[in-house]
């Protein structure tokens, strides 16, 4: 028999701290598979966020750095400008990127930094106990929106990808999901495309937003959490390629 699926080398053999059914495990694996398939382990530097994935360097066997909450795009700028031949990616959650780090992502995008941003959107702040995030859905009950999110007073779920896509400094934005087999495969294709753009020195920032399940704080079983993404989240966060400056017309 031949092996048709086994763990890719850049994903470390270990038990993660993620909850059962958390999307991070899948996202990490896809990223590791892309790194191995493109054979770039020895020139990739990753930036871990503050969030559930703060220990991403325990799971991904590449040079990695852990930075202050939200600052990853600025750190990535410092790294890429001084090391243009390296593949630099940041891996950020919705608190990291869309709350505290909005200035940093906006300006890295605005300057057209040639970095890849993996944006994990699970509509909640997981690490700190399930508080409302900028991307939390209206009506969603969280630790800081116990009656369900109201637009009046807390605003609407933030559509960062759409906002970033209008900037000339952004070359590629796609929104994907970890909500089923086809969606997962598509997410991997998008991640690979984003990294390849950086490798071919395409001017501009590439960002892949990944809708990801948080069964624990959505108070759902893992399979139902994935279904909630497909049934509900995509109404506010539609999937698909939002911008691809390098695509042939």
């Amino acid at each position: 028999m031949k092996t048709v699926f086994s763990k890719t080398p850049t994903l470390k053999e270990c038990s993660t701290h993620y909850c059962p059914g958390c999307g991070h495990g899948i996202a990490h694996r896809l990223l590791a598979e892309v790194i191995d398939e493109l054979d770039i382990r020895d020139k990739t530097i990753g930036i871990a966020p503050v969030g559930c994935a703060v220990l991403a360097y325990e799971y991904l066997d590449i040079d990695m750095i852990e930075v202050a909450h939200g600052r990853a795009p600025a750190v990535a700028t410092g790294m890429k400008r001084t090391n243009p031949d390296k593949v630099i990616f940041s891996y950020q959650g919705d608190g990291d990127l869309a709350a505290i780090g909005t200035a940093e992502i906006m300006h890295a995008a605005h300057r057209g930094e040639r970095i890849t941003v993996i944006f994990i959107n699970n509509a909640i702040f997981g690490m700190t106990g399930g508080q409302m995030a900028p991307t939390t859905m209206l009506g969603q009950v969280t630790a800081t929106s116990p009656e369900g999110r109201q637009a009046d007073g807390t605003g609407y779920p933030m559509q960062i990808s759409e906002m970033l896509s209008i900037m000339p400094g952004v070359c590629y934005v796609e929104r994907c999901a970890i909500s089923g087999i086809a969606a997962i495969r598509n997410t991997k294709r998008a991640i690979k495309h984003a990294v390849e753009l950086q490798m071919t020195n395409q001017p501009g920032l590439s960002l892949v937003e990944i809708l990801s399940p948080c069964p624990t704080y959505w108070r759902m079983k893992p399979a139902n959490a994935m279904k909630w993404i497909e049934d509900e989240m995509v109404k506010v966060f539609p999937l698909g390629k939002i911008k691809d400056a390098a695509a042939k017309k």
Partner: peptide, 21 residues
């Protein structure tokens, strides 16, 4: 059937899949 769908969806990468040639 060795389709690998279980391995693709596993968040912990605990499944290895084999298939006859």
């Amino acid at each position: 059937s060795g389709c690998t769908l279980c391995a693709i969806i596993c968040p912990e990468a605990v499944i290895e899949v084999y298939r006859d040639e």
